[in-house]
């Protein structure tokens, strides 16, 4: 088994390397991928068409917004998939005694957490809201926001974190996030345009067609952030308690 594994890995490795001889060099500006019409369009026309200086956000949430919608659905599937596989309902006997109980970590850790938590959350919200202009966006901000609740659970115990973010609430938030994203696309349909064609919303959003696209990107990024926050916390709480959701690590 080991030998055949090694053999097939080496064959695949050679296959992959053999293809690189007609690949562009590192940092080549004229490679088809870097100078092709698609990439040039994104770089040259994004700000003109969407007024978003961060091209990555524009490509993510607008040009390839359909992809990103499914990406959010992937996160959502992972969250409910973990619940479907792992979650056990009912009696919560047989909790190992050596686990740290609901009191969470020590005093020092708790004080530090309570000091830095507001800043983490504020920064996460900034990352979500400012994703058009600087590196960031819904996924990044959502993960930070989710991490803040995980930190809360680590420091004060899972029960404390669950009082902020109960299981029901995580599911509602996760579904709400996708609902915002898909609903925004459906709104475009209702306004008589293609799915996720944000330019159709310029009659209800201020600032013309380009700003409608910009604002819509913010809206869908908020949806993404909600789902990611909820699912990250749900993943942590289920995995750390083997699906019992009673006591954390």
């Amino acid at each position: 088994m080991k030998f055949f594994g090694l053999l097939s890995v080496i064959i695949v490795g050679f296959l992959l390397l053999s293809a690189t001889k007609d690949f562009p060099n590192w940092g080549d500006e004229d490679s088809p991928a870097n100078s092709g019409p698609v990439s040039s369009f994104y770089i040259e026309k994004t700000e003109e068409k969407t007024k978003v200086p961060n091209m990555v956000t524009a490509v993510l949430a607008d040009y390839r917004g359909y992809d990103t919608m499914f990406e959010t659905v992937v996160i959502f599937i992972a969250g409910i998939g973990i619940i479907a596989v792992l979650r056990t309902y009912g009696s919560n006997e047989s909790i190992p005694k050596n686990q740290v109980g609901d009191e969470g970590a020590g005093l020092l850790a708790r004080m530090t957490c309570s000091l830095i938590l507001p800043f983490i959350q504020l920064f996460a919200l900034y990352v979500v809201a400012h994703g058009h202009h600087s590196p960031g966006g819904g996924f990044q901000g959502g993960v930070m926001l989710g991490a803040s609740y995980i930190l809360l659970a680590l420091a004060y115990g899972l029960a404390r974190a669950k009082s902020c973010f109960s299981e029901k609430r995580t599911l509602v938030f996760a579904a709400l996030g996708i609902f915002i994203y898909v609903g925004w696309g459906v709104l475009c349909l209702v306004m008589g345009s293609e799915f996720l064609n944000y330019s159709a919303l310029d009659s209800i959003l201020p600032g013309g067609v380009e700003m409608a696209r910009s604002h819509s990107m913010l809206a869908v990024e908020i949806g993404v952030a909600l789902t990611v926050t909820a699912i990250m916390f749900s993943m942590f709480s289920n995995l750390s308690t083997k699906g019992r959701l009673d006591k954390g690590l």
Binding site: G36, V38, F41, Y63, Y66, N197, Y198, S199
Partner: peptide, 10 residues
Amino acid sequence: MGGWDPSSGY
């Protein structure tokens, strides 16, 4: 999706 027309054929 999004009503983006092709740019220079792509």
